[in-house]
Every structure is written in structure tokens, then in C-alpha cells.
């Protein structure tokens, strides 16, 4: 196997392992807010590296121009944060309980108030509430 094929192999394996890590985080972490971190970061990076591997494979090993995969990566890197944002908004709306040692849980309670634009706490005040 050439150097190129080795690098494709490494990228594919890294991508698959990152995808697995994202799914593992989903069942292992204790509450919704921490679980959200796995899929938004690890799975997106895993997919990015798979896309890179597939682009290398088709363009250099198969010698055929193929850049469509780039669109998948582009779309996912834009849509992943939006999905995460919407999901955490739903979780805050439904007042899901975060794990016990989460700091600044008062911010969740203040959120409704904050959203209306009144009673914005300063950063110093927040530091005291810890």
C-alpha cells in the first residue's frame, strides 16, 4: 500500500472512531446538556475526516474528479451548530434537570426573565452567585 492509501486508511478509521465516540457520549454522559456535546463536536469532525478520505480516494486513487463530497462537509459544518442550538433551546424550554454539580443553574431560571430583556445580571454578580 502506498503512502496515499495509508493516509486514506488512517482518515477513514479516525472518522469511524470519532463517529463511534459521539454515539458513545450519547449513552454514557449523565444529562441532556452534557450529552449534546458529543454529537455536535465528535460526530461532525468524524464526518469531516471521512469526507476528506473519500475526496482523496476518488481524486487521486481513482483519478476521477469528484468534489461533491465537499458539499456534504460544508452543509454539515453549517447545520450542526444550528441543530445543537435548537435542541438546547427545547431542553431549556422544557426545563430539563441538569446533573447535580452543574454550576450556575440559576441562569436557567433567570433565562425567561432575561429573554424579556429585563434584569440582566452583570458578570460580577454571576461570579458571586457560585
Amino acid at each position: 500500500m502506498s503512502l496515499l492509501e495509508w493516509s486514506i486508511a488512517i482518515l477513514v478509521m479516525a472518522g469511524a472512531l470519532f463517529v463511534l465516540l459521539g454515539s458513545f457520549a450519547l449513552i454514557k454522559l449523565p444529562d441532556f446538556y452534557t450529552r449534546l456535546h458529543g454529537p455536535t463536536k465528535a460526530t461532525t469532525l468524524g464526518l469531516g475526516s471521512l469526507v476528506l478520505a473519500s475526496m482523496l480516494f476518488f481524486n487521486f486513487v481513482q483519478q476521477q474528479l469528484s468534489l461533491q463530497q465537499f458539499l456534504i462537509a460544508l452543509f454539515l459544518f453549517i447545520s450542526a451548530p444550528v441543530t445543537a442550538y435548537m435542541l438546547i433551546k427545547v431542553a431549556l424550554h422544557q426545563k430539563l434537570v441538569p446533573m447535580l454539580n452543574t454550576r450556575h443553574q440559576d441562569l436557567m431560571k433567570q433565562r425567561d426573565n432575561l429573554a424579556k430583556g429585563n434584569d440582566l445580571p452583570t458578570v460580577e454578580k454571576l461570579a458571586d452567585s457560585d
Binding site: 454514557k28 454522559l29 449523565p30 444529562d31 446538556y33 452534557t34 441538569p98 446533573m99 454539580n101 452543574t102 454550576r103 450556575h104 443553574q105 441562569l107 436557567m108 445580571p121 458578570v123 454571576l126
Partner: peptide, 10 residues
């Protein structure tokens, strides 16, 4: 899991 120290920040 007990090493995690999650929190909200503004």
C-alpha cells in the same frame, strides 16, 4: 462522569 464539571456561562 464524576470528573465532569459542567456549567452555564453568560
Amino acid at each position: 462522569n464524576k470528573n465532569l464539571r459542567p456549567g452555564f456561562v453568560l
